[in-house]
Amino acid sequence: MSLLTVRDLVVRFDTHHGPVHAVDGVSFDLNEGETLGIVGESGSGKSVTSLAVLGLVPRPPGVIGTGSSIRFRGRELLGLETSELRRIRGAEISMIFQDPMTSLNPLLTVGRQLTEVLEVHRGTSRREARERSARGLGDVGIPGPEAALDSYPHELSGGMRQRVMIAMALLLEPAILFADEPTTALDVTIQAQILELMRDMQRRHGMSIVFITHDLGVVAGTTDRMLVLYAGRVAESASTRALFAQPAHPYTRGLLASVPTLNGDPDAPLSSIPGSPPLGGGGGEACAFAPRCPLVQARCRNEQPPLVAGRAEHVAACFEADFTEAAR
């Protein structure tokens, strides 16, 4: 059953330079226990999508489209009172961010920040909150959790801070965890630790995870299904295996081909996509990828391609979408 249903999400920011369509009609479902990867480059709308689900888009300047809908367990989240939303956020849907240094309060001890979550949401007593927080830190592999409770964020390494964030996000056993580039600021060996920890936490708690990242290597090993965003729209969506094996959209194909790997001919030039992603989001009448697309046709410049279905829940927004294996 679908735990989270997002339909036609539109998020616009009104700026001095005119409106920016950060998210321009994104729809997806998240099933129970599933890990969904949302992949895109800068300006693709991947982070704004997750902020919108959590009700964290600043308004103004942000405007959510009137036809948009975000339902959690069947209940519409858009238009909820702030107090209602607060009850869901953190307890049912929680989030971890890229930079654990700026998302932890530098003036409070780790323990205070963890216990506060339990006291506010559950009315737990201080003593019990402290015990449960220590257990939470132990679960995410922090050595000496009791001592860690009394430390300040700056006393911990980047990897340890991200563990604290994960412990905090899981404290209330949420149904959904949004992870926005959770390992991008970390070193490779620490990234490997955190990814392993997230897999382990999911096995134990059975929550659904939405993994937001630009790193195709990270989604390949962690997600069941993927959404590729470009300029605020879904370019392609499929199971992770199908998407890597038979990418149908020319953008996905270009993206996969431009990732340098540890195998393959190191002397051959990397395949690349010419130009750069648009800065102002989507919103036009044309396909936003048309200026960089190797398969561009005349109609791509005047018409938004709709999402067309291939097979087995594999969709791509392209007039030239090719769902055959030979396409890659």
Partner: peptide, 27 residues
């Protein structure tokens, strides 16, 4: 060895079967 093994591979099939060597601790 650990550094090479920690690099995520953009290929779900290979990621699923490969053995990762995760280093403990921090630098």
């Amino acid at each position: 060895q650990a550094l090479l093994s920690a690099v995520p591979v953009p290929d779900p099939a290979r990621e699923a079967e490969r053995r990762r060597q995760v280093l403990g601790g921090d630098v």
